[in-house]
Design a protein around this nucleic acid. Structure first.
Lengths: 355, 355
DNA sequence: CCAGCCTACCGAATCGATTCGACCGGCGGG
DNA sequence: CCCGCCGGTCGAATCGATTCGGTAGGCTGG
């Protein structure tokens, strides 16, 4: 038909109304008589007009209906984590009523050369941004966003004042798990932590190592363990995966003389790996060794075990972030939220074996 | 400072240049003298101008730098699938050079009532769209997008002509696995399929059931098995999860008299579940029962097993989709791509046990 | 029968940046 | 010494829709 796509003015002309009226037919902001509406709709159909151009609309409105979600990791990696997945779910759900979608973003420019365009916070038409796991590097993304006066909320990370945070009672929760383990009589306990800093190796940590942990979640949960077991060996994993837990477990169970009777893992995935390692070493869970996790996710394939763990409201976290975004978009004050994890006893913990 | 955020005109005025020059300083489309550039940049810094408003830029340019990725499932569910995760990864990588980001979208309006705004294909400023697993419902999304003359590419699904598709040689690949199994002497074989249609139950399929499979991937892979084993029982899972495979395996291994000696699963996750079920039933893999998968992903926690499987280039698929999008955006013709899966023998298949 | 009001619609300004052709002075080549 | 070309800058038109103040009737109530 036409070389140029039809615009709303074309439709208006065809329907013999003013552009403003035509616009209103599509946005529904103002009442329109049925007759007029019909005329406009017919004209639109006739011209193959499929509704207002979102680009133009977003310029005029000052809203794009897009919420950016910023990760520090490789996108593919981020979704390997069930907790993040659930969060995204909650987030998606919470922003949907705003008519908003989620734009996946990474904070760094891999090729930070000026040559290539950066698909970044700066060039994307965001209404708001959600930073996930704001540690270190994300800081500058944060500044960039704030300079543009875009509402920001941070999940699991420190963001400075004025930025709502969504977080957990990591330390207290982990302490509860440790207390549970202690109440079962365990004294030889080890802990397996999440990664301590960007791109670090796995392995047992020295005291010095522990002091330089830059990932807040890891630090807090470890502190929770330390509240009860100041001297328990701590093994840092390189990621939250079953295989990482397996590697950690193998090392912890390697020496029969120094074998822990309980392992406190900082994630369910790690815990699952530890359970596997225990089986592999001929240890029965929970008879010979107790294992606790963190997250309360369903570990696919771990049945019949049910981890003793701390159930965190992952979906809720996402939802809360979405709510905060919604509030800020409505010019309201959004405040930080601190969720409480719930201790859940499964079948992977038991009293210390009597020798 | 200012009530209204500074615009590029403000900056231009402050720097005593024309708006066009100021614009060029930021876009770099045209050479600018160093002196002028400095003046503009200083003015910008002074006014707290953080770069062009993406909304305005995208209107004028006709490009938003956003590629929509449309799922048919719940967002959270989509990322439970490692293959999709990898695809997203490849996709993200391939669109990054375009300076584009990925916008997550679902096709249906859960509350299709007109009341709430729909965060949909219609209202998002997309440059292009990638539909994933285009079956049935996605069809109307497709139409919507095409009506807007937005480039579309479809991954694993039929989309009608003129729409580039990214797909696998599902049938041939699965047939290769079946042939392998046959070459090992197996005659009592069962297959575990992916879901057959939206929201279906799990269970053994009747012949009639098989004829009404609406998910193309499932249908094709099953056909591959049928090419070799026309009568093998087929069990449809309700999703690609280890636990689904486990359920399937339990049922298949329940009756010792009718036990299959080999199970061909349509995904690695399902295969992993079947392996578990075999162990549970006291069967040794691969001595007593052989299992094949599909995808070639790393199944977290399945070690020491390595599935005999068909390795599909998941990341490549995403990358190809990204490339197709890039091509179409450059007004070039993008053609469909059909990837070939590679058969990989692991340690989960062996000759049929001699009685 | 008229004041006042509500409904439905119109005009015109605006959102903020990009882009293309015109323009202008200076420099190198003929 | 003059012309042409080129790097650099400017003006003005656009991109497509939204929105707000205003107005013309039709209707109601006094």
């Amino acid at each position: 038909m036409s070389l140029r796509r039809a615009t709303i003015s074309d439709v208006a002309r065809e329907a013999r109304v003013s552009p403003s009226t035509a616009s209103v037919v599509f946005s529904g902001k103002t009442p329109v008589s049925d007759a007029t509406r019909r005329r406009v709709l017919d004209a639109a159909a006739h011209l193959g007009y499929t509704g207002p151009d979102p680009r133009a609309a977003s310029l005029r409105r000052g809203r794009s209906g897009i919420v950016g979600v910023v990760f520090e990791e490789h996108l593919g990696t981020a979704f390997l984590d069930p907790v993040k997945t659930l969060m995204m779910d909650g987030l998606a759900e919470a922003v949907a009523p705003l008519g908003a979608g989620l734009l996946l973003l990474r904070d760094q420019n891999p090729t930070s050369a000026v040559s290539e365009p950066a698909p970044s916070l700066m060039t994307a038409p965001l209404d708001a941004a959600v930073l996930i796991g704001c540690s270190g590097v994300l800081r500058e993304s944060l500044d960039a966003v704030r300079a543009r006066h875009i509402p920001v909320v941070v999940i699991e990370g420190d963001a400075g004042e004025g930025v709502p945070r969504i977080e957990l009672d990591n330390r207290e929760a982990q302490r509860r798990a440790a207390e549970h383990v202690r109440s079962l009589g365990h004294t030889r306990v080890a802990t397996v932590t999440l990664p301590t800093r960007a791109g670090w190796r796995r392995g047992l940590m020295s005291e010095a190592d522990e002091r330089t942990i830059s990932v807040e979640v890891t630090r807090e949960r470890l502190a929770g363990v330390r509240d009860i077991y100041p001297d328990a060996p701590a093994y840092a994993a390189a990621g939250s995966f079953i295989d990482e837990g397996l590697a950690a477990g193998r090392e912890l169970f390697a020496d029969p003389r120094r074998r822990p009777t309980a392992v406190i893992a900082q994630s369910d995935l790690l815990a699952a790996g530890v359970v596997r390692a225990a089986e592999e070493a001929g240890l029965r869970v929970p008879v010979d060794v107790s294992v606790t996790g963190f997250d309360g996710i369903v570990v696919d394939g771990l049945a019949p075990y049910e981890l003793t763990t701390l159930v965190q409201p992952a979906t809720e976290k996402g939802r809360a972030a979405g709510a905060a975004v919604a509030a800020m978009l409505a010019e309201e004050e959004a405040d930080s939220v601190r969720f409480t994890c719930i201790f859940r006893e499964g079948n992977t913990t038991a009293s210390v074996p009597t020798l």
